[in-house]
Structures are given as structure tokens and as C-alpha cells.
């Protein structure tokens, strides 16, 4: 029985470390998450269905997932670009910029939200020069989500670019490929798995984001309400079951999407495992 799970290893502490990991994960992740479903279970099926398919809630799903997806996509492109610049070139102030990348992590999200709103409002420093509205529109939500998701792709792609073998690029050049061909055929496939990981992290983070978005979104029903905001609203009305029902739906959709992204990555990694 024991031997089915435990392969012989010269490293000690398998049982202890696995046990601790399970306990830790249960206390901090699995148990709280399961409470969502336990709480939701207090509702009847029809109550549950009407709560989660209410037009206002459905509109918020669309905004939350849509804006998170767009924001993560933007971050994937520009994150790779920033990582490229930080790894490939040396210029004065490089360290400073490298440090700036992490700032969205450190900044309290409400501060970020207020700052972005001030900038992008109709009368703000940036907003006054734009012919279209940013603050209090879905675009504003996307801007906030892009801001908070910035570090993920950069930090995932950076080490991969750093370890990228210069000789591989040289080999490509010697075989007659120009810079563009080398980039598309050799470098992109190499950094794609890392960029995807960064994408899924940025996406997950954006889905759960609340603090920075509520200020810039304006929270107009059917238009700029994000799902976490609706959950908060329900909580404030002491509708705990309703709040957890929406949370459960969000959790399941996120889980499926992350599973899909991870599956894609697993497939890619298996295909050309590094030597």
C-alpha cells in the first residue's frame, strides 16, 4: 500500500514535507474555497440559477472576463517587449526601470485606482487630451487591470530571455535567416511557454482585482460593474448566499480557463523539453 505512493528516494522527509504541504494547502486554500460551495448550497437550485443569471450579473461576467482577457493579452505583448529591452540592452537607468516594473505589486490597489482615475478622467492630465472617454467606461477597467497585471509577464519572460543561448540565434543568422525570421521562428517559440504562464497569472490576478477598478469603473449597472463589485454589494446587503453563488460561478469559470491554459503549456513543454 505504502509503496504505491512512495517511491524510494535518497532524499529524506518525503512523508513529512508532503503532509505539511497538504495541511497547509487545506487550511489556506481548499477549506476557504470549499466554504463558498457550502454556503451556496444553502440556496435552492432555482434561487441559485436566478441569482447567477440575473442580467446585471451576466453583464458583469462579460466585463470582468472580457476586460481581464484583454488586459492580460496587452500585458503579454508589452511584457515581452519590456523584458526584451531589460535583458538585451544596457542603458542608464536600467536598474531603476527594472525596479519600477514591480511597483504595481507593492502599491495598495486603491491608491493605483485613485491615481489612474485622476489621470484618465475627462479633466485629468491625460484624459483631457483624449477624444474618447477612458475613466468610467469598460476601457477604464481594462486600463486598471493592465496596470496591476504588468509585472507577471515581465518577470516570467525575463529569466528565459536571460538564459537564452546566444549561439542559437547565431546559428539562425548563419543559416541565412534575417532578424525578423530569427525572432519569429526561433525566439518567440522559446519564450512562448513563459509568456503564457505570465498571461495566466495576469489574467487570474485581473479577475480577482477589486480595489483599483472600483474607482475608475464608475460602477454603472449593466455597463461598468465588475463581478467582484457585485459580490461586495451582495455582502453589504447581508445576502451571503447570493454573494457566494456568484463567487462560485466565477471560481468555476476561472478554474476551467486556467486548466485550459496550463494544459496548453504542459503540451508545449512536453513537446520540446529543454536539454
Amino acid at each position: 500500500m505504502k509503496s504505491r505512493f512512495k517511491k524510494h528516494s535518497i532524499l529524506p522527509g518525503f512523508g513529512l514535507s508532503l503532509g505539511f504541504t497538504m495541511l497547509y494547502l487545506s487550511l489556506l486554500v481548499l477549506l476557504p474555497l470549499s466554504m463558498i460551495f457550502v454556503n451556496t448550497a444553502s440556496m435552492s437550485w432555482s434561487d441559485f440559477w436566478s441569482t447567477v443569471t440575473e442580467p446585471r450579473v451576466v453583464a458583469s461576467y462579460k466585463l470582468s472576463f472580457g476586460a481581464a482577457f484583454v488586459a492580460a493579452s496587452i500585458n503579454m505583448v508589452f511584457g515581452v517587449l519590456i523584458a526584451w529591452v531589460l535583458v538585451r540592452y544596457s542603458f542608464p537607468g536600467k536598474r531603476l526601470i527594472d525596479g519600477l516594473v514591480d511597483l504595481p505589486f507593492a502599491l495598495p490597489t486603491a491608491v493605483a485606482g485613485i491615481a489612474l482615475t485622476t489621470l484618465y478622467a475627462k479633466t485629468g492630465w491625460v484624459g483631457q487630451f483624449l477624444s474618447f472617454k477612458v475613466a468610467f467606461t469598460p476601457l477604464g477597467v481594462t486600463v486598471a487591470l493592465t496596470f496591476i497585471g504588468l509585472p507577471f509577464v515581465v518577470r516570467m519572460v525575463q529569466p528565459v530571455l536571460q538564459n537564452f543561448d546566444k549561439e542559437t540565434e547565431e546559428a539562425s543568422a548563419i543559416l541565412g535567416a534575417n532578424r525578423r525570421q530569427t525572432f519569429i521562428r526561433v525566439i518567440i517559440p522559446e519564450i512562448l511557454p513563459a509568456a503564457l504562464t505570465g498571461f495566466s497569472l495576469a489574467f487570474a490576478r485581473a479577475l480577482g482585482e477589486y480595489g483599483s477598478v472600483v474607482f475608475i469603473a464608475g460602477n454603472m449597472p449593466m455597463k461598468t460593474e465588475i463581478t467582484p463589485l457585485l459580490i461586495m454589494t451582495k455582502l453589504e446587503q447581508y445576502d451571503y448566499a447570493g454573494a457566494t453563488a456568484i463567487a462560485a460561478v466565477m471560481l468555476i469559470i476561472s478554474f476551467i480557463m486556467l486548466l485550459f491554459i496550463n494544459g496548453m503549456q504542459w503540451w508545449m513543454n512536453r513537446k520540446f523539453a529543454h536539454y
Partner: peptide, 29 residues
Amino acid sequence: RTTERKVGFVFQHYALFKHMTVFDNIAYG
């Protein structure tokens, strides 16, 4: 430039394209 010199070059550590099959590696040039 290197690209136009039309030389064959073999690196000590092979420098193969990891994400391509043997066939695609050879066909690259």
C-alpha cells in the same frame, strides 16, 4: 554580413533549435 556569407557553422554545444524536430532543424536554412 553573416547572413550573406553562406558558410556552414557547427557549434561546440550544437545550438540546435529545441522546439523543432530534427527534420525542421535541417530544413531551417
